[in-house]
């Protein structure tokens, strides 16, 4: 299983954890983050989400986040899988696993990774809600924007 992926298939947290902990060298922590489709968003009753990705670039952006996090927290190994297609309430849209020598690095790397995903990974969600649908739009993706990267780092270490 690859460390990063963009896939229409259901996400498998246990498999990703196993991938990252196989041959573990005495690490002390596995931290994970799973993002779920919420029932409510900005006062709207959500029916389901449709995720779309620029797959080739999204995989590269996820790999970049892994590289950044592993450089920031030496000894940490990170994996990220993002799902695409139609997702219903409660479905997992993203899983992040950080294996690290100690828990502070693991928690921080997970938080950093999800913040960076929201900044630079070319994936979009279309929300279908009671009464209509709308493309959600967040950050203008710019991996070279150092102030955005610093903001993600500060959030991760808050």
């Amino acid at each position: 299983m690859p460390r990063v992926s963009v896939t229409a298939a259901p996400l498998e947290l246990d498999t990703l954890i196993r991938e990252l902990t196989t041959g573990a060298r005495g690490d002390g922590a596995v931290a994970t983050f799973t993002g779920l489709v919420r029932a409510q968003n900005q006062g709207r009753q959500v029916q389901f989400l449709e995720y779309e990705a620029y797959d080739a670039l999204a995989v590269r952006a996820l790999e970049r986040i892994v590289t950044e996090a592993e450089a920031q927290w030496p000894g940490t190994r990170l994996g990220l899988h993002h799902r695409t297609g139609r997702l219903d309430i409660g479905d997992a849209s993203i899983i992040i696993v950080a294996v690290s020598p100690h828990r502070p690095a693991g928690f921080a790397a997970c938080r950093y990774a999800i913040e960076r995903v929201k900044q630079i990974v070319p994936i979009w969600k279309r929300e279908y809600f009671d009464g209509g649908d709308v493309w959600l739009e967040g950050a203008t993706a710019d991996p070279d924007d150092e102030s955005a990267r610093q903001a993600a780092y500060k959030t991760a270490c808050a």
Binding site: A53, V117, K118, V121, P122, I123, W124, G138
Partner: peptide, 10 residues
């Protein structure tokens, strides 16, 4: 060449 609206993954 790809043109990308602001992203909203996660």
């Amino acid at each position: 060449v790809a043109f990308l609206p602001p992203v909203s993954g996660g």
